[in-house]
């Protein structure tokens, strides 16, 4: 496969729609297993985290961030490409003038994280682990997403 440089939106869309989606299913299985075995999917662990009573969740998040940062540094330094031969970019999340969407949206997310004891990843893993009622949590999250989509024009960002 020859290396390609993405230039136009059409080409970018094509690059997004490469064949071989099965590899992401495998990546998801991997992530689901690790997340469940780490106990980061546990409501108890989230309560423990928000009460600062154990290093467990902070250790997971801290070492995950460190591993990801070192990996991205290596990818950039060695100019590694994707298996399709494309250049690798990690798109940023540009700041907004006041950052309102980040602190206000983040706080709203924190309400949900502490109540449900699960962020989106653990919701999926817990459904698989046999906690069927988490499907209702997922439906709630979809309604929340829909509500954001409908209100987006009227919310400060």
């Amino acid at each position: 496969m020859s290396p390609t440089t993405v230039t136009t939106p059409e080409e970018a869309l094509q690059a997004e729609a490469r064949p071989g989606l099965l590899r992401f299913l495998v990546a998801g299985i991997w992530f689901g297993i690790v997340l469940t075995k780490s106990e980061a999917v546990s409501w108890y662990r989230i309560q423990e985290m928000f009460r600062f009573q154990s290093i467990h969740m902070y250790g997971i998040l801290g070492s995950a961030v460190l591993t990801a940062a070192v990996s991205i540094f290596v990818i950039r330094r060695l100019r590694l490409r994707t298996t399709y031969g494309d250049e690798i970019h990690v798109p940023g999340r540009p700041m907004t003038p006041r950052g309102t969407r980040f602190w206000l949206g983040g706080t709203a997310f924190g309400f949900g994280w502490a109540l449900l004891g699960a962020c989106p990843g653990p919701i999926y893993a817990l459904i698989g682990a046999g906690y069927g009622v988490m499907v209702v949590g997922l439906l709630g999250a979809l309604v929340g997403t829909f509500t954001y989509g409908m209100l987006r024009a009227r919310l400060p960002h």
Partner: peptide
């Protein structure tokens, strides 16, 4: 915990453009 919590997980993560991951 389940319904309202789920709602805020979805609403907040999309408003903030990202979650824990």
């Amino acid at each position: 915990i389940i319904v309202v919590g789920g709602f805020f997980v979805g609403f907040g993560s999309r408003y903030a453009d990202g979650c824990t991951s």
